[in-house]
Measured scan of single mutants.
Amino acid sequence: VTTYKLVINGKTLKGETTTKAVDAETAEKAFKQYANDNGVDGVWTYDDATKTFTVTE
């Protein structure tokens, strides 16, 4: 299990959150659900070296 980070650069929501997941794909699903629940819809990137997803509106 690895800790992944999400950086949110939204129009109305900015911040960070983390999740523990077995792989990046599982973390991405959780983060996309989180973003959707919070009304954030943007461009996604992922940096494997830092295990960090970024979504920018």
Rank of each mutant, 00 (worst) to 15 (best):
residue 1 V to M: 13
residue 1 V to K: 11
residue 1 V to T: 15
residue 2 T to E: 12
residue 2 T to S: 13
residue 2 T to V: 12
residue 2 T to M: 10
residue 3 T to H: 07
residue 3 T to G: 04
residue 3 T to Q: 10
residue 3 T to S: 09
residue 3 T to R: 06
residue 4 Y to L: 00
residue 4 Y to R: 00
residue 4 Y to M: 01
residue 4 Y to N: 00
residue 4 Y to I: 01
residue 4 Y to D: 01
residue 4 Y to T: 01
residue 5 K to F: 14
residue 5 K to H: 14
residue 5 K to D: 02
residue 5 K to S: 06
residue 5 K to T: 12
residue 5 K to C: 07
residue 6 L to F: 06
residue 6 L to R: 00
residue 6 L to H: 00
residue 7 V to H: 05
residue 7 V to S: 04
residue 7 V to P: 00
residue 7 V to K: 08
residue 8 I to H: 03
residue 8 I to R: 01
residue 8 I to A: 03
residue 8 I to E: 01
residue 8 I to T: 03
residue 8 I to N: 01
residue 8 I to L: 07
residue 9 N to C: 09
residue 9 N to T: 07
residue 9 N to E: 13
residue 9 N to F: 11
residue 9 N to G: 04
residue 9 N to L: 13
residue 10 G to K: 05
residue 10 G to E: 03
residue 10 G to H: 06
residue 11 K to Y: 10
residue 11 K to T: 10
residue 11 K to M: 11
residue 11 K to H: 14
residue 11 K to L: 14
residue 11 K to W: 09
residue 12 T to G: 10
residue 12 T to F: 14
residue 12 T to D: 10
residue 13 L to D: 05
residue 13 L to Q: 08
residue 14 K to C: 09
residue 14 K to P: 06
residue 14 K to R: 12
residue 14 K to A: 09
residue 14 K to H: 10
residue 14 K to N: 13
residue 14 K to S: 10
residue 14 K to D: 05
residue 15 G to H: 13
residue 15 G to Q: 15
residue 16 E to A: 07
residue 16 E to N: 08
residue 16 E to R: 07
residue 16 E to P: 05
residue 16 E to T: 13
residue 16 E to I: 14
residue 17 T to P: 03
residue 17 T to N: 05
residue 17 T to C: 11
residue 17 T to F: 13
residue 18 T to C: 10
residue 18 T to P: 02
residue 18 T to D: 05
residue 18 T to L: 09
residue 19 T to L: 14
residue 19 T to V: 15
residue 20 K to L: 15
residue 20 K to A: 13
residue 20 K to H: 14
residue 20 K to V: 15
residue 20 K to W: 12
residue 21 A to F: 06
residue 21 A to W: 03
residue 21 A to G: 04
residue 21 A to I: 03
residue 21 A to M: 03
residue 22 V to F: 13
residue 22 V to W: 12
residue 23 D to M: 04
residue 23 D to W: 04
residue 23 D to Y: 04
residue 24 A to V: 13
residue 24 A to M: 13
residue 24 A to K: 15
residue 24 A to C: 08
residue 25 E to V: 12
residue 25 E to I: 14
residue 25 E to S: 13
residue 25 E to H: 12
residue 25 E to Y: 11
residue 26 T to P: 02
residue 26 T to M: 13
residue 26 T to G: 06
residue 26 T to F: 05
residue 27 A to I: 01
residue 27 A to K: 00
residue 28 E to Y: 15
residue 28 E to D: 04
residue 29 K to T: 08
residue 29 K to S: 09
residue 29 K to W: 07
residue 29 K to Y: 06
residue 29 K to P: 02
residue 29 K to M: 09
residue 29 K to A: 11
residue 30 A to S: 10
residue 31 F to P: 00
residue 31 F to C: 03
residue 31 F to A: 02
residue 31 F to I: 02
residue 32 K to P: 00
residue 33 Q to F: 05
residue 33 Q to I: 12
residue 33 Q to N: 12
residue 34 Y to M: 04
residue 35 A to P: 01
residue 35 A to F: 03
residue 35 A to N: 03
residue 35 A to I: 07
residue 35 A to G: 03
residue 35 A to T: 08
residue 35 A to L: 10
residue 35 A to H: 02
residue 36 N to D: 11
residue 36 N to A: 15
residue 36 N to L: 15
residue 36 N to G: 09
residue 37 D to I: 12
residue 37 D to R: 09
residue 37 D to N: 11
residue 37 D to S: 10
residue 37 D to W: 07
residue 38 N to Y: 13
residue 38 N to P: 01
residue 39 G to P: 02
residue 39 G to K: 09
residue 39 G to R: 06
residue 39 G to I: 04
residue 40 V to W: 08
residue 40 V to A: 04
residue 41 D to H: 14
residue 41 D to R: 13
residue 41 D to P: 04
residue 42 G to S: 02
residue 42 G to M: 02
residue 42 G to I: 01
residue 42 G to V: 02
residue 43 V to S: 08
residue 43 V to A: 10
residue 43 V to R: 06
residue 43 V to G: 04
residue 44 W to E: 00
residue 44 W to V: 02
residue 44 W to A: 01
residue 44 W to F: 04
residue 44 W to Q: 01
residue 44 W to R: 00
residue 45 T to P: 00
residue 45 T to H: 11
residue 45 T to R: 07
residue 45 T to A: 09
residue 46 Y to D: 00
residue 46 Y to P: 00
residue 46 Y to K: 01
residue 46 Y to W: 04
residue 46 Y to L: 02
residue 47 D to I: 05
residue 47 D to M: 04
residue 47 D to K: 03
residue 48 D to G: 09
residue 48 D to W: 06
residue 48 D to S: 11
residue 48 D to I: 09
residue 48 D to T: 09
residue 49 A to D: 12
residue 49 A to K: 12
residue 49 A to T: 12
residue 49 A to L: 13
residue 49 A to Q: 09
residue 50 T to R: 05
residue 50 T to S: 11
residue 50 T to I: 06
residue 50 T to D: 05
residue 50 T to M: 07
residue 51 K to D: 03
residue 52 T to P: 00
residue 54 T to S: 06
residue 54 T to G: 03
residue 54 T to M: 09
residue 54 T to I: 07
residue 55 V to I: 11
residue 55 V to G: 00
residue 55 V to S: 02
residue 56 T to M: 07
residue 57 E to V: 10
residue 57 E to I: 10
residue 57 E to Q: 10
